[in-house]
Simulated assay, not measured.
Amino acid sequence: MLPRDVRPGVLHLLDRLDDTPAMVCSAARDILAWNAMAAALLGDFSASPPAERNFVCRFFTDPAARALYEPSDQEAFARRAVADLRSAAARYPADSGVRRLVDRLHADSAEFRELWARQDVEVRRSTRKRILHPVVGPLDLDCEALHDPHRDQWTIFYTAAPGTPSHSALRLLKVVGSQDLAARH
């Protein structure tokens, strides 16, 4: 069974990082904890019930979540996400949550079914991503993933090199937060 509780020290660290988007994910990419900057960057995870807070599921079933990624990066992200989920499914074959997630994605996404059939297995580590934020614009971010092997959880930090437009955009995102700035008529 995948552990869902996050160590208190990690939760404290998330709260202290007020200028860096950060979150904790399970091996199956369930989003277990996050800070305000992660919600501002990637969306308010608390708006979804805990069973719906999964990075892979959001990507394959929610057009708004998918739109955060550069179109040219979506295929590579999809391939890596499925290979990573396959790795978690292999480590936790008796986990009912992982089985339900895979079954749901099989039912909801032809793209997922095609990628799952390839049987690729991978554990993602740190990477570089381009996020297309609807308010602050495109951000080129380094995603550092730190692994807690005892809980098989990943703490993911999104950072930008100082002095870059992406760093300035993250600073603006800290001010804007997750406010809806759309004009109302």
Rank of each mutant, 00 (worst) to 15 (best):
W154S: 11
G43A: 08
L11E: 13
L85D: 08
L2C: 07
A28D: 09
V102H: 05
G9W: 05
P21Q: 10
P162A: 02
A182D: 14
L68H: 07
Y69V: 02
R104G: 07
T159F: 01
E75M: 08
R128Q: 12
L172M: 12
K174A: 06
V135M: 01
R66Y: 06
S178K: 08
S168W: 01
L105A: 11
A110D: 14
G163E: 02
C57T: 14
L132C: 11
E75A: 15
P3N: 10
E144W: 10
S72H: 07
V10N: 03
G43Y: 00
R118T: 14
D18M: 09
A182C: 10
E122N: 11
R86S: 14
E70D: 15
V98K: 04
G97R: 15
F60Y: 01
R118P: 05
Y69L: 11
S72T: 15
D44R: 15
P49I: 00
Y92Q: 06
P50D: 00
D44H: 12
P50Q: 08
P3V: 12
D19H: 15
L172E: 07
H133Q: 08
A40Q: 00
R124S: 13
L132W: 02
P49Y: 06
R130E: 05
C143S: 13
A51E: 15
R58F: 02
A94K: 03
A81N: 03
A51G: 10
C25Q: 12
H185P: 15
L14D: 06
L139N: 03
T164G: 04
R171H: 10
D84N: 14
R184E: 00
A94I: 03
V24Y: 05
S26C: 11
L68N: 03
L181E: 03
A117W: 06
R29K: 14
R104V: 04
E111P: 05
A67T: 00
P149W: 02
